[in-house]
């Protein structure tokens, strides 16, 4: 279980008028749970997960994993994976080399690292591309390589930072299913950042809605739709989804 307690980040400490980028956010993620953090750009959601992985130091607050305080632990020791929006692949290496690179460095045997890498590449359906360099793959395929690379290190929590914002609609849809599949296969917890309401509501067990550095509401998708805590949730989440459904319902007749 991951517990986030009163996490805040102020970037410019010398300037007292500066607003915090993340302001006193708390939540928990249970084993195997899918939590989305939903909010418009600039609301602090990326800073929040960069603190969780350990790429940013929180100004105040703490992060506990299975009861252990990991707030100041180096990122690589937290047992977490991170998938970037821009894939961040090693462009000079093939798909296989990308996935087995870290394993090799961690002194796994050659055979072990190769086997692990290949099984992860299989998991994301890219076995036909093991010897291809990333620049020859589509965006969706590249993101799959990044996911395989993350999975190879067997994290129990994976953080996704808007992993699909550069992909087209149909690729998004198939990748969504795959991420859900991975969640259940490996029983990993997932923290998923997005500004897309539909994405959050279709994938998550729990959603944290953020606005201007603070957590506005946290709950299951049903709770948020049925009991929005304020006008912001009503506008940004509920009405937005309603509009999408209404505009499509002209064409569909739903079975009762």
């Amino acid at each position: 279980m991951l517990e986030i307690k009163n996490l805040s980040k102020v970037f410019d400490l010398d300037n007292p008028d500066k607003k915090p980028a993340v302001d006193n956010v708390s939540f928990t993620v249970n084993k195997g749970e899918f939590l989305s953090i939903l909010g418009p750009s600039g609301c602090g959601k990326t800073t929040l997960i960069r603190m969780i992985i350990g790429l940013e130091k929180p100004t105040t607050g703490s992060i506990l994993k299975n009861g252990l305080d990991i707030t100041n632990m180096p990122p690589s020791e937290r047992g977490m994976g991170f998938v970037f929006q821009n894939y961040a692949l090693f462009e000079n290496m093939t798909v296989l080399q990308n996935v087995e690179y870290a394993l090799k460095i961690k002194k796994e045997t050659k055979k072990n690292s190769r086997d692990t890498a290949l099984s992860m590449i299989k998991e994301v359906g890219l076995l036909n591309y093991v010897d291809v360099k990333p620049y020859r793959l589509s965006g969706g395929q590249q993101q799959r390589v990044a996911i395989a690379r993350t999975l190879a290190l067997k994290p129990d929590i994976i953080l996704f930072d808007e992993p699909m914002s550069a992909l087209d609609a149909s690729t998004r849809l198939s990748l969504r299913k795959e991420i859900k599949q991975i969640q259940s296969t490996f029983n990993t917890s997932i923290i998923y950042i997005t500004h897309d309401q539909e994405e959050a509501f279709s994938m998550s067990d729990k959603i944290l809605v953020m606005d201007e550095s603070v957590s506005v509401q946290i709950g299951s998708p049903e709770e948020i739709i049925l009991k929005p805590v304020n006008q912001y949730i009503q506008d940004f989440v509920v009405d937005n989804l309603k509009y999408k459904i209404e505009s499509l319902s002209k064409f569909y007749r739903f079975e009762k």
């Binding site: 350990g54 790429l55 460095i105 690379r149």
Partner: peptide, 15 residues
């Protein structure tokens, strides 16, 4: 011009 997250990827993966 090289992806600016590579050092972060390294620090997450322990490289």
């Amino acid at each position: 011009k090289i992806n600016n997250n590579l050092e972060d990827v390294g620090s997450i993966m322990g490289v």
